[in-house]
Amino acid sequence: MASVVGVLEARELAARERVEGLRGEVDRVLAELADAETDWKGWVIARQRVGEVLAESPKTGASAVAPTSAGGDPAPVASPEQSAPSPARPVRPGSIVPVWRPGLAAGALAVDYQRILALLAGRSSPGGETVSCQELAAGLGLEPTSANIEGRVRSRAKRLTDRGWLAEPVPGRFTLAVGPAADS
């Protein structure tokens, strides 16, 4: 029969081996975490640099400098999608859709997006009747082809929904969001 001390020593040895194995696993995970954080910070810096280039004034060539936090990490910068076009600059086709906020008029959008908003303003009320992409395409005078519905209408309606201009209470059916509807 094994002695009690022998059994305790065996269990202590097994527990110590488990702790050492877990410590090795922790070291590996911490090293992987450090690599992932370094990669993430690189992408944050890249996005900020692109934002600076896109925000560059065409007349002066000056760009906004991204501030840093107290720890030296890059401070969050509004992405180009979140900043509204300057009222002095005309909106060009294919421009970025700004996030809706009070006081931002539909004139800040490209013409195709304005047409979708105008059509919805005439056909639905916020929280009321919804309109499908096929109905939007027909209202915009487009042929009901897959390319028009998916490529020209649904993608734009989804982008407007993501930026707060439209609501999609039922998948595939759109209506004006409460904020933009109150401004129209």
Score class of each variant (00 low, 15 high):
residue 9 E to Q: 15
residue 71 G to P: 00
residue 9 E to F: 11
residue 104 L to E: 11
residue 132 S to Y: 01
residue 182 A to I: 00
residue 4 V to W: 05
residue 82 Q to Y: 13
residue 160 L to R: 02
residue 133 C to L: 00
residue 124 S to R: 01
residue 175 T to M: 02
residue 133 C to Q: 01
residue 37 E to D: 08
residue 172 G to C: 00
residue 10 A to P: 02
residue 70 A to F: 12
residue 20 E to R: 13
residue 106 A to I: 09
residue 158 K to G: 02
residue 45 I to M: 09
residue 101 R to Q: 14
residue 22 L to N: 01
residue 78 A to H: 07
residue 169 P to Q: 04
residue 7 V to D: 09
residue 151 G to Y: 08
residue 160 L to D: 05
residue 130 T to V: 07
residue 180 P to H: 05
residue 43 W to V: 14
residue 170 V to S: 06
residue 1 M to S: 13
residue 60 T to R: 07
residue 15 A to V: 14
residue 39 D to T: 12
residue 147 A to G: 02
residue 18 R to Q: 15
residue 80 P to R: 09
residue 83 S to W: 09
residue 12 E to A: 15
residue 169 P to S: 06
residue 62 A to W: 14
residue 63 S to G: 10
residue 131 V to Y: 03
residue 5 V to D: 15
residue 154 R to E: 10
residue 135 E to S: 06
residue 116 I to L: 08
residue 26 V to Y: 13
residue 51 G to C: 08
residue 116 I to M: 10
residue 140 L to F: 00
residue 30 L to Q: 12
residue 176 L to E: 04
residue 94 G to E: 02
residue 67 P to F: 05
residue 170 V to P: 02
residue 3 S to Y: 05
residue 122 G to V: 00
residue 15 A to L: 15
residue 37 E to A: 04
residue 161 T to R: 03
residue 161 T to V: 01
residue 160 L to K: 00
residue 37 E to R: 10
residue 167 A to D: 07
residue 17 E to K: 14
residue 177 A to M: 01
residue 181 A to F: 09
residue 134 Q to F: 10
residue 112 D to Y: 02
residue 70 A to N: 05
residue 85 P to T: 09
residue 70 A to S: 13
residue 47 R to N: 04
residue 48 Q to W: 11
residue 136 L to H: 05
residue 152 R to H: 12
residue 49 R to N: 14
residue 168 E to C: 05
residue 111 V to D: 13
residue 42 G to C: 06
residue 5 V to A: 14
residue 90 P to D: 14
residue 52 E to I: 02
residue 25 E to Y: 03
residue 128 G to Y: 05
residue 145 T to F: 01
residue 95 S to L: 07
residue 135 E to V: 01
residue 123 R to F: 08
residue 84 A to Y: 12
residue 155 S to T: 14
residue 74 P to V: 13
residue 61 G to Y: 06
residue 42 G to L: 03
residue 110 A to K: 05
residue 98 P to Q: 10
residue 184 S to R: 11
residue 91 V to A: 06
residue 102 P to Y: 10
residue 17 E to P: 00
residue 100 W to K: 12
residue 174 F to I: 07
residue 82 Q to T: 08
residue 23 R to K: 13
residue 32 E to W: 01
residue 49 R to M: 11
residue 96 I to R: 12
residue 59 K to H: 11
residue 13 L to H: 13
residue 141 G to R: 11
residue 120 L to M: 02
residue 133 C to V: 04
residue 79 S to A: 15
residue 97 V to K: 05
residue 164 G to I: 01
residue 24 G to A: 13
residue 2 A to E: 12
residue 129 E to N: 05
residue 10 A to G: 12
residue 75 A to V: 04
residue 108 A to L: 05
residue 18 R to K: 12
residue 68 T to K: 11
residue 64 A to N: 12
residue 70 A to R: 15
residue 22 L to A: 08
residue 60 T to Q: 07
residue 68 T to A: 10
residue 17 E to V: 09
residue 121 A to C: 00
residue 8 L to V: 14
residue 184 S to W: 08
residue 105 A to W: 13
residue 71 G to H: 02
residue 182 A to P: 02
residue 165 W to M: 03
residue 90 P to K: 15
residue 8 L to R: 12
residue 15 A to D: 14
residue 166 L to G: 01
residue 171 P to W: 01
residue 26 V to N: 10
residue 99 V to W: 14
residue 73 D to F: 04
residue 68 T to M: 09
residue 148 N to S: 03
residue 137 A to W: 03
residue 47 R to M: 11
residue 148 N to L: 01
